[in-house]
Every structure is written in structure tokens, then in C-alpha cells.
């Protein structure tokens, strides 16, 4: 297959796969590092959750515009 003939759908699959991988990697970061400097350890301050919501939004976007 010629380089220029690669299907556009592959781009969406790669993007979605990349975002899923990132979602997994985010949760490998230790909790104590996430809260460094935070005034309290409230659940909403865990920015790994923010990242997961953000990635879910991206998954929706790339699934929608395929």
C-alpha cells in the first residue's frame, strides 16, 4: 500500500488508542505526588480524575467526527 493511500479511519483509531493508553498511564502516577502542595486531600483535587474526564471528552470527539 502506498503511504498516501492509508485510510483516514486509521487516524481516528490511532487517536482513540493513544488516548486510552494515556488514561492508563495517568493512573500510574502516585497519589502523593498529585496532592503535593494541595491545602487538603479532597477527592476533587485529584487531577488524575480531571485528566480522565478530559480524555473521555476527547474519545467522544474523535468517535463523533470519524
Amino acid at each position: 500500500m502506498d503511504f498516501g493511500d492509508m485510510p483516514v479511519a486509521w487516524a481516528n483509531y490511532i487517536s482513540i488508542g493513544g488516548f486510552l493508553l494515556l488514561a492508563l498511564l495517568v493512573w500510574l502516577i502516585p497519589r502523593k505526588l498529585i496532592y503535593t502542595g494541595a491545602t487538603d486531600h479532597a477527592r476533587w483535587r485529584d487531577i488524575r480524575i480531571w485528566a480522565t474526564v478530559l480524555i473521555t471528552l476527547q474519545l467522544f470527539i474523535y468517535a463523533l467526527f470519524d
Partner: peptide, 13 residues
């Protein structure tokens, strides 16, 4: 469409 064809001049996927 989020991506353009692989042979697009400016933004190949």
C-alpha cells in the same frame, strides 16, 4: 471529518 487524507498537501493525517 477530524482527519484529512494521508496525501493532503497541508495537513496529512
Amino acid at each position: 471529518q477530524a482527519y484529512l487524507p494521508a496525501d493532503h498537501e497541508s495537513f496529512p493525517w
